[in-house]
Write a protein that binds this DNA or RNA. Structure first.
Length: 640
DNA sequence: GCAATGAGCGTC
DNA sequence: ACGCTCATTGCT
């Protein structure tokens, strides 16, 4: 066999993120194949590595070391995942070994020794009749069956059985003899889609890869995928790297959910990982959800995806009736208990009507701890810095400063209406479940959220109080979206998009308007995001959101990177020339105050140049043995 | 003039 | 964290 092994060495040092050549001892020659885990001596110490390739000669002028050990003959790193890890590392200004740590689960030797399972027969192609609600849906499924690399974004109708629809896409691909990979925000959604695929194609065609299962089970399922025995993989963000054989389709559900953002370096988002895979492996791509992100809108505008949406009348027929009531003009009810829970009359009436029809009522209350942001006192549009368009915040002294560039702005005027008045988007006092329960005596009260998430509820009457994302599955007669202004007023770039997404996830569980379904959102009806919910118009909202971000120079219209570190460390950085530097600003969510953030901003076409510069920056630091902490995140998820 | 020592650097 | 290079030091 070819005498030289090209190896990716598992080291945290950025300047060593390249292949190294080793000699293969004769006794390891037949198992030292591409993809195996290795032990080798690197700079004196014994380290882990990945065998990338066998080649006939090395360009290294010095003496080559020898591979110490092949950990196991299992070729865990497929060529496709190796290429993916390289591409993701380059894009995120990180190292391949960091990405491989995310991509490949820890070895479980006993599991590896178990006999493998046999791949099941191809499932039959499923009926795709339900996709007829979406004019371009059936054509997309045809493309999947024919093995074409179609790229689409799909806005599910309210009330849609979306797990069944996603299962149909996956089984269609499996029926054509290729693999499908579906990535969902959480375990609950994963289980639902897994169930839907099992119902269509049986239990042998699909595995769920989720962190919840123990290491042995997780590795067993992962190995079955790697060995080509399972064509359909469902899972949370780590599954985006699953080594599905003959990948024909990648699906991302609810791409605005921040659970899709990987918190470990180099912080790749599932959207990025799956997008890269679609390109590298020639697979179809489906980005789906009730709502639509600005990133997905951009992929439509650039022609990278096309949209699968229902026509207006079909959307209207499926949606509940949504009513917005402003906080200020809220008419409280006579009922003392309802008044104590600060329930507006309209909300109280909608809930009572649903309960009278024997249908459950959902109450969405935001999680605690949202920081107030500043908005125009006149038109309520977020207050933006005149210098860099960053978000304004109130300093302790009562003065106003930008959270991005730190410039204090004494003479603020709203860019939209010219008003000089500012208003804190106060976090509404969160109503307790007990207060709400007292307003509806005799109705079973259930709460879902935090550590106690209910998957579903028993049929019949119930008042369900849930935080966003924890709504139990049911057909509700009404939903009350309380403290909506608190969701909308969060001082982050994605506040509006995120609010609409969360409202839609809740509202989609409510019966259509024709069946009496009602949604009451306690927020000013003149706000664009509230109107988008009332009209059930996720596409229009995404278009407006992207237009606004383009205007202001925010992602995804531009490429950004965040450099977080101690102020001295940031001051010492030799920043690349030719890009806009914002800050230092506070690090979002950092309570210690010991760290600051620099933001680099470039036009999108210079995105890869920015990543390359940041790789060079980190390589220089690690070569110089710099010890001060520096966190580099390209496309930072949290932006104020 | 040259060996002995140690800091710095690259890492196959 | 090993081993190589290269500069410095101290001795002949």
């Amino acid at each position: 066999m070819l005498p030289i092994a090209r190896v990716c060495v598992d080291t945290p040092l950025a300047h060593l993120d390249r292949p190294f050549d080793y000699q293969v001892p004769a006794e390891l020659d037949d198992i030292a194949l591409p993809g195996v885990r290795l032990r080798l001596r690197f700079a004196g110490r014994l380290v882990d590595g990945w065998l990338l390739d066998r080649v006939d000669r090395s360009d290294h002028p010095g003496r080559l070391g020898w591979i110490e050990r092949v950990v196991s003959a299992e070729p865990v790193l497929s060529p496709q995942v190796a290429a993916l890890a390289r591409a993701v590392a380059d894009r995120c200004a990180g190292t391949m070994s960091d990405v491989l740590r995310l991509a490949i689960p820890p070895r479980h030797a006993r599991t590896e020794a178990e006999p493998g399972v046999v791949a099941p027969a191809l499932p039959p192609r499923p009926e795709a009749g339900s996709w007829r609600s979406y004019p371009r849906g059936p054509a997309f499924l045809d493309a999947l069956y024919q093995g074409r690399a179609a790229h689409a974004c799909w806005q599910a109708l309210p009330g849609e059985d979306w797990p069944a629809r996603l299962a149909e896409t996956a089984v269609t691909v499996a029926a054509a003899g290729r693999g499908a990979l579906l990535v969902l925000p959480d375990h609950r959604d994963t289980a639902r889609v897994h169930g839907a695929v099992v119902a269509l194609a049986g239990p042998d065609a699909v595995v769920a890869l989720a962190a919840e299962s123990g290491p042995a089970l997780r590795y067993r399922r992962w190995l079955a995928v790697r060995r080509g025995a399972v064509p359909i993989v469902i899972g949370t963000r780590a599954a985006a790297f699953a080594p599905v054989a003959e990948l024909g389709l990648v699906v991302l559900w609810d791409d605005g959910d921040d659970l899709h953002a990987e918190p470990r370096a180099p912080y790749p988002h599932s959207r990025l990982v799956l997008g890269q895979r679609a390109v590298l492996e020639g697979a179809a791509l489906l980005v789906a959800g009730y709502a639509r992100t600005a990133e997905t809108q951009l992929s439509l505008d650039t022609g990278w995806t096309h949209e699968i949406v229902a026509v207006r009348d079909v959307v209207r027929a499926a949606a509940p009736r949504v009513t917005a009531i402003g906080e200020d003009d809220t008419q409280l009810v006579r009922d003392a208990a309802a008044r104590a829970a600060r329930l507006p009359a309209v909300a109280f009436d909608a809930a009572r009507a649903a309960l009278a029809r024997d249908q459950p009522v959902l109450v969405q209350v935001p999680r605690r701890g949202y920081v107030p942001a500043l908005a125009c006192g006149q038109c309520r549009s977020p207050a933006r810095c005149r210098h860099c368009a960053g978000p304004l915040a109130l300093l302790a002294a009562g003065r106003v400063a930008c959270r991005w560039c730190g410039v204090t702005d004494a003479g603020y005027r709203c860019a939209a209406c010219g008003s000089a008045r500012l208003r804190a988007m106060a976090v509404g006092a969160s109503r307790t479940a007990e207060e709400l329960g007292r307003a509806f005596p005799g109705v079973p009260l259930r709460t879902s959220g935090g550590g106690q998430v209910l998957a579903d509820i028993p049929p019949g009457l119930a008042l369900v109080v849930a935080t966003p994302g924890a709504e139990p599955l049911a057909r509700y007669g009404a939903a009350l979206l309380l403290d909506a202004a608190a969701l909308l007023g969060r001082p982050t770039l994605r506040a509006a998009e995120e609010a609409l997404r969360r409202w839609m996830v809740a509202a989609a569980l409510v019966a259509p308007a024709a069946d009496g379904g009602r949604v009451i959102v306690v927020a000013d009806s003149s706000l664009a995001t509230v109107q988008a919910l009332v009209r059930w118009d996720p596409a229009g909202h995404a278009r407006a959101e992207l237009a606004a971000r383009t205007e202001l120079g925010f992602p995804p219209a531009v490429r950004m990177a965040a450099l977080d570190g101690a102020p001295e460390a940031l001051a010492d950085l030799e920043l690349p020339a030719g890009m806009e530097v914002l800050g230092p600003v506070p690090v979002p969510g950092d309570a210690s105050g010991q760290r600051e953030r620099l933001l680099l901003r470039v036009p999108r076409p210079q995105g890869s140049a920015l990543a390359a510069e940041l790789v060079a920056l980190q390589a220089g630091r690690s070569a110089r043995k710099a010890v001060e902490f520096l966190r580099v995140e390209v496309d930072p998820q949290e932006l104020s």
